[in-house]
Write a protein that binds this DNA or RNA. Structure first.
Length: 204
DNA sequence: TATTGATCATGC
DNA sequence: GCATGATCAATA
Protein backbone atom coordinates (compact mmCIF):
# COMPACT_ATOMS: atom_id res chain seq x y z
CA UNK A 1 0.00 0.00 0.00
CA UNK A 2 1.03 3.61 -0.30
CA UNK A 3 1.54 6.02 2.57
CA UNK A 4 -1.46 7.96 1.27
CA UNK A 5 -3.74 4.92 1.47
CA UNK A 6 -2.53 4.11 4.96
CA UNK A 7 -2.95 7.68 6.14
CA UNK A 8 -6.49 7.85 4.74
CA UNK A 9 -7.40 4.71 6.69
CA UNK A 10 -6.57 6.63 9.86
CA UNK A 11 -7.95 9.94 8.68
CA UNK A 12 -4.51 11.52 8.72
CA UNK A 13 -3.43 14.19 6.23
CA UNK A 14 -0.01 13.44 4.67
CA UNK A 15 2.42 16.39 4.68
CA UNK A 16 3.54 17.85 1.35
CA UNK A 17 7.14 16.93 2.15
CA UNK A 18 9.00 15.67 5.20
CA UNK A 19 11.07 18.78 5.73
CA UNK A 20 9.07 19.89 8.72
CA UNK A 21 7.65 16.45 9.41
CA UNK A 22 10.73 14.28 9.70
CA UNK A 23 9.16 11.71 11.97
CA UNK A 24 5.82 11.52 10.17
CA UNK A 25 6.27 8.14 8.49
CA UNK A 26 7.51 6.47 11.66
CA UNK A 27 4.64 7.92 13.65
CA UNK A 28 2.12 6.79 11.03
CA UNK A 29 3.43 3.22 11.28
CA UNK A 30 3.27 3.40 15.08
CA UNK A 31 -0.35 4.42 15.04
CA UNK A 32 -1.33 1.84 12.45
CA UNK A 33 0.35 -0.96 14.34
CA UNK A 34 -0.62 0.13 17.83
CA UNK A 35 2.74 0.99 19.34
CA UNK A 36 2.20 1.94 22.96
CA UNK A 37 5.43 3.22 24.44
CA UNK A 38 4.83 6.84 23.41
CA UNK A 39 8.03 8.76 24.07
CA UNK A 40 9.18 6.59 26.96
CA UNK A 41 12.53 4.85 26.98
CA UNK A 42 11.04 1.43 26.20
CA UNK A 43 10.41 -0.70 23.12
CA UNK A 44 7.55 0.62 20.97
CA UNK A 45 5.53 -2.54 21.61
CA UNK A 46 6.14 -2.95 25.31
CA UNK A 47 4.47 -6.32 25.76
CA UNK A 48 6.31 -7.83 22.79
CA UNK A 49 9.64 -6.14 23.40
CA UNK A 50 9.72 -5.03 19.78
CA UNK A 51 11.16 -1.77 18.47
CA UNK A 52 9.63 -0.31 15.30
CA UNK A 53 11.93 1.31 12.74
CA UNK A 54 10.80 2.79 9.46
CA UNK A 55 13.52 2.51 6.82
CA UNK A 56 13.52 4.76 3.74
CA UNK A 57 15.05 2.96 0.74
CA UNK A 58 16.14 3.90 -2.77
CA UNK A 59 14.73 2.23 -5.86
CA UNK A 60 17.46 -0.40 -5.71
CA UNK A 61 16.65 -1.21 -2.14
CA UNK A 62 19.44 0.63 -0.34
CA UNK A 63 18.75 2.66 2.80
CA UNK A 64 18.58 6.39 2.10
CA UNK A 65 19.57 7.41 5.60
CA UNK A 66 21.36 6.26 8.71
CA UNK A 67 19.11 5.00 11.50
CA UNK A 68 18.90 6.72 14.87
CA UNK A 69 19.21 4.27 17.76
CA UNK A 70 19.24 6.22 21.01
CA UNK A 71 20.81 9.19 22.71
CA UNK A 72 24.32 8.94 24.11
CA UNK A 73 24.46 8.92 27.90
CA UNK A 74 26.95 11.68 28.61
CA UNK A 75 28.13 12.77 31.99
CA UNK A 76 28.61 9.33 33.41
CA UNK A 77 32.16 8.13 33.86
CA UNK A 78 31.40 4.61 35.02
CA UNK A 79 31.65 2.05 32.24
CA UNK A 80 28.36 0.44 31.26
CA UNK A 81 28.74 -3.15 30.05
CA UNK A 82 27.50 -3.82 26.51
CA UNK A 83 25.02 -6.33 27.90
CA UNK A 84 23.00 -3.66 29.64
CA UNK A 85 23.58 -0.83 27.18
CA UNK A 86 20.69 1.09 25.64
CA UNK A 87 22.03 0.35 22.18
CA UNK A 88 21.81 -3.39 22.72
CA UNK A 89 18.38 -3.15 24.33
CA UNK A 90 17.05 -1.05 21.46
CA UNK A 91 18.34 -3.36 18.77
CA UNK A 92 17.51 -6.66 20.48
CA UNK A 93 14.32 -7.08 18.45
CA UNK A 94 13.35 -4.70 15.65
CA UNK A 95 10.48 -4.63 13.19
CA UNK A 96 11.96 -2.97 10.10
CA UNK A 97 9.42 -1.36 7.81
CA UNK A 98 10.99 -0.36 4.48
CA UNK A 99 9.30 2.29 2.34
CA UNK A 100 10.18 4.36 -0.72
CA UNK A 101 12.43 7.13 0.55
CA UNK A 102 13.12 9.00 -2.70
CA UNK A 103 12.20 12.65 -1.98
CA UNK A 104 11.20 12.99 -5.64
CA UNK A 105 8.20 10.75 -4.99
CA UNK A 106 5.23 12.58 -3.46
CA UNK A 107 4.74 11.47 0.15
CA UNK A 108 1.23 9.94 -0.37
CA UNK A 109 2.46 8.02 -3.43
CA UNK A 110 5.32 6.26 -1.67
CA UNK A 111 4.88 2.53 -1.34
CA UNK A 112 5.55 0.51 1.79
CA UNK A 113 7.63 -2.67 1.49
CA UNK A 114 7.31 -5.96 3.32
CA UNK A 115 8.24 -5.47 7.00
CA UNK A 116 10.40 -8.04 8.73
CA UNK A 117 11.23 -8.88 12.31
CA UNK A 118 14.93 -8.93 13.05
CA UNK A 119 17.35 -9.66 15.86
CA UNK A 120 21.09 -9.27 15.45
CA UNK A 121 22.98 -12.44 14.60
CA UNK A 122 25.91 -13.24 16.86
CA UNK A 123 28.22 -11.86 14.18
CA UNK A 124 26.24 -8.63 13.88
CA UNK A 125 26.12 -8.25 17.63
CA UNK A 126 29.86 -8.72 17.94
CA UNK A 127 30.45 -6.04 15.33
CA UNK A 128 28.10 -3.62 17.05
CA UNK A 129 29.66 -4.35 20.37
CA UNK A 130 33.13 -3.57 19.02
CA UNK A 131 31.98 -0.18 17.79
CA UNK A 132 30.06 0.51 20.95
CA UNK A 133 33.06 -0.26 23.13
CA UNK A 134 35.33 1.93 21.05
CA UNK A 135 32.88 4.83 21.09
CA UNK A 136 32.06 4.29 24.75
CA UNK A 137 35.75 4.21 25.56
CA UNK A 138 36.30 7.60 23.98
CA UNK A 139 33.29 9.11 25.71
CA UNK A 140 34.14 7.49 29.04
CA UNK A 141 37.64 8.95 28.82
CA UNK A 142 36.15 12.40 28.40
CA UNK A 143 36.67 12.63 24.66
CA UNK A 144 33.13 13.60 23.60
CA UNK A 145 34.27 16.87 22.12
CA UNK A 146 36.88 15.26 19.89
CA UNK A 147 34.66 12.35 18.84
CA UNK A 148 33.73 12.60 15.17
CA UNK A 149 31.08 10.73 13.21
CA UNK A 150 33.89 9.01 11.28
CA UNK A 151 34.60 6.70 14.20
CA UNK A 152 32.87 3.32 14.19
CA UNK A 153 32.41 0.75 11.43
CA UNK A 154 28.64 0.25 11.76
CA UNK A 155 27.72 2.43 14.71
CA UNK A 156 28.56 6.12 14.87
CA UNK A 157 27.93 9.07 17.17
CA UNK A 158 26.40 12.21 15.70
CA UNK A 159 24.61 15.27 17.05
CA UNK A 160 21.02 14.71 18.12
CA UNK A 161 19.61 18.07 19.07
CA UNK A 162 17.02 20.73 18.36
CA UNK A 163 19.76 23.06 17.15
CA UNK A 164 23.43 23.96 17.53
CA UNK A 165 22.70 25.88 20.72
CA UNK A 166 21.44 22.79 22.56
CA UNK A 167 23.68 21.83 25.46
CA UNK A 168 24.15 18.80 27.61
CA UNK A 169 26.39 18.17 30.60
CA UNK A 170 29.29 15.86 29.94
CA UNK A 171 32.70 15.09 31.40
CA UNK A 172 35.93 16.28 29.82
CA UNK A 173 39.25 14.45 29.71
CA UNK A 174 40.23 15.84 33.11
CA UNK A 175 37.01 14.71 34.73
CA UNK A 176 35.49 18.17 34.77
CA UNK A 177 31.93 18.97 33.80
CA UNK A 178 31.53 20.60 30.43
CA UNK A 179 28.66 21.59 28.23
CA UNK A 180 28.38 19.89 24.85
CA UNK A 181 25.97 19.26 22.01
CA UNK A 182 23.64 16.30 22.75
CA UNK A 183 24.69 13.21 20.80
CA UNK A 184 23.00 10.09 19.51
CA UNK A 185 24.05 6.63 18.33
CA UNK A 186 23.22 5.95 14.67
CA UNK A 187 23.46 2.82 12.52
CA UNK A 188 25.33 3.51 9.30
CA UNK A 189 23.58 2.63 6.06
CA UNK A 190 26.20 0.00 5.35
CA UNK A 191 24.83 -1.92 8.33
CA UNK A 192 21.12 -1.58 7.55
CA UNK A 193 21.86 -2.30 3.87
CA UNK A 194 23.29 -5.67 4.87
CA UNK A 195 20.34 -6.41 7.14
CA UNK A 196 17.94 -5.53 4.32
CA UNK A 197 19.77 -7.63 1.77
CA UNK A 198 19.81 -10.66 4.02
CA UNK A 199 16.09 -10.38 4.65
CA UNK A 200 14.78 -9.62 1.18
CA UNK A 201 16.40 -12.24 -1.05
CA UNK A 202 14.38 -15.00 0.59
CA UNK A 203 11.23 -13.84 -1.16
CA UNK A 204 12.72 -13.60 -4.64
C1' DT B 1 27.59 12.16 -4.30
C1' DA B 2 28.13 9.97 0.20
C1' DT B 3 28.63 11.31 4.71
C1' DT B 4 28.83 14.32 8.52
C1' DG B 5 27.00 17.72 11.18
C1' DA B 6 22.59 20.38 11.84
C1' DT B 7 17.90 20.54 12.38
C1' DC B 8 12.44 19.82 12.86
C1' DA B 9 8.07 18.12 15.40
C1' DT B 10 5.78 16.09 19.40
C1' DG B 11 4.92 14.22 24.25
C1' DC B 12 5.61 14.26 29.11
C1' DG C 1 15.00 19.16 29.25
C1' DC C 2 15.14 14.87 27.29
C1' DA C 3 12.96 11.19 25.39
C1' DT C 4 10.50 9.78 21.07
C1' DG C 5 10.02 9.93 15.65
C1' DA C 6 13.66 11.10 11.98
C1' DT C 7 15.49 13.98 7.40
C1' DC C 8 17.84 18.09 5.80
C1' DA C 9 21.73 20.44 3.93
C1' DA C 10 26.56 21.74 4.00
C1' DT C 11 30.87 19.66 3.33
C1' DA C 12 34.55 16.53 2.15
Amino acid sequence: MTLGELARARDIEPPHDLRRHKGWVGQLFERLLGADASSRDEPDFTALGVELKSLPVTEDGRPVESTFVCTVPLGELEAVPWETSRVRRKLARVLWVPFEGDPAIAVPMRRVGAPFLWSPSSLEEMALRDDWEELGGIIGAGGVESLSARVGRYLQVRPKAANARSRRRAIDDEGLILSTLPKGFYLRTRFTAAVLAANLHTRA
